[in-house]
């Protein structure tokens, strides 16, 4: 059957949401903007990254924000051979759980191995590749370009195998 002769047009729906963080995730994002990572001490002294407001076992409010390293160990990963629009990288990469030095939980981020799926493995060491600092006097439009750190999980462009950056 022949294709019917009908009009087709692109139609885009956009919602310009801005979300508030609360003080705990706010501290995590502030640290990212400043170029380092923090977690929070749980009731039993373990360090949870990203920080949470309440202890996952006792439900106590948690208060002690602590610094952790920007390198760590891949504990699990999943290869993305064909990245979709809006994903952090436009070339093949891995989503990975990374247990940062000084942390007791793993955090989700992406690992760039230059497109090579054989170059990632559970247990390998990776280090954050940071975007440049936010320029003094940067506007909201400048921030929206993604070119520099703004207080976002994407202030870390990706993690790369340790020793590569």
């Amino acid at each position: 059957m022949a294709e019917p002769d009908v009009l087709v047009a692109p139609s885009t729906i956009e919602y310009p949401f801005r979300r508030t963080t609360g003080p705990v995730i706010g501290a995590f994002l502030t640290a990212l903007r400043e170029g380092f990572l923090v977690g929070i001490k749980s009731s039993d002294g373990k360090v949870i990254v990203p920080p949470v407001e309440y202890d996952p076992y006792t439900a106590d409010a948690l208060t002690e924000i602590v610094e952790v390293g920007d390198a760590g160990e891949v504990t699990a990963w999943s290869w993305v051979a064909e990245p979709l629009d809006g994903q952090p990288l436009d070339r093949p990469f891995a989503f990975a759980l990374i247990k940062l030095d000084g942390a007791d939980t793993a955090m989700l981020h992406v690992v760039d191995t230059g497109g090579d799926p054989a170059a990632i493995a559970t247990g390998m060491r990776v280090r954050a590749r940071w975007k440049p600092p936010r320029p003094v006097g940067a506007s909201e439009e400048d921030d929206a370009t993604g070119a520099h750190r703004v207080g976002s999980i994407l202030d870390i462009e990706c993690f790369v195998p340790e020793g590569e950056n």
Binding site: T12, I13, E14, Y15, P16, F17, R18, R19, T20, T21, P23, G26, A27, L29, T30, R33, G86, D143, A144, V150, G151, S152
Partner: peptide, 10 residues
């Protein structure tokens, strides 16, 4: 301190 972030949906 960071108090909010852009989270657009498209």
């Amino acid at each position: 301190q960071v108090r909010s972030f852009r989270a657009p949906a498209r």
